[in-house]
Amino acid sequence: MNTLGRTVLVLTAAALLAGTASVPTIAQDKVKIGFSQGTMESSWRVNMVERNKKWFDENIADKAELTITNAENNASKQVTDVEGLLASGIEILVISPVTADALTPVVKQAMDAGVKVLTLDRSVNTPVTSHIGADNILIGNTAGKFVCELLGGEGTVGEIQGVAGASATVDRHDAFNATIAKECPGVKVVADGIGDYVREPAMRLTEDWIQRFPEGELDVIYAHNDGMALGAVAALEAAGRLDDVKVVGIDGEEAAYQAIKDGKMAATFTYHFVAPEGMMYAWDIAQGKTLDAKIVLPTAQIDATNVDEFLGTGF
């Protein structure tokens, strides 16, 4: 419990209640919700927590109590975190596991004890109340369709992949290429490189491609995340080739929205933060609603036509 004490953020709603004294106080006990986050070592994960917490604070803070733990990408710490949450008497466990296998036993233990479990983004190998996540295959397909339309069925693409072999990379690659092959065989992926989801390697790769392909021979760069897409934009801009090559990213970074607004990027596709939906569905469960076993969250396509609606909502 000591380690738990260090990382746990207990959100008391007392202050909020005090500020709204006119609201009749409900004598009933608050619903206890525990949120175990696997890691917060990425902008996206930080957003998942912050946005769920924000929705909680704004909507149900007077009716429920939320405890958030961060396992720091360590599966055994997350098991301890969850055990601590269960010991504190939570009724609903919201969890985004570090790995499926390591967290399966403790999640099963929670289900057996009658706690409702909602897994976010990554799942576990045991039945839970519901799983909510974005779908990289859907995103890859949507990006593929967009590139087909952008090129009018004819053209060349350079693909900057994320960390080789990671499931997100594999899905974003396979789905994109399958869609292109099916919907617009005239579009060819002529170059392929690895950028590890980091801007700097993507920028170097793009610099090399600028040399490899004279003007007009490379039409689109499809990057597996916005950071790499922005690296490609920086290289193209420095070489004066931004008009020649269109850049497409994934994730929904604020800087990518700005680049789309400035006409430097063609489009990006959001990878859903699973927020505030995580808390919304947790609240649905608390009120006794039955959810589908698996809920796939949609991806939004952001391009020049709708970027104004999204500016300020990215991360």
Binding site: A164, V190, A191, D192, G193, R204, D208, Q211, R212
Partner: peptide
């Protein structure tokens, strides 16, 4: 070497 392999269009896995 990295530049050559990219110019030649060698697959990223082979490059490693």
């Amino acid at each position: 070497l990295a530049n050559m392999l990219n110019l030649f269009g060698v697959s990223p896995f082979t490059q490693q």
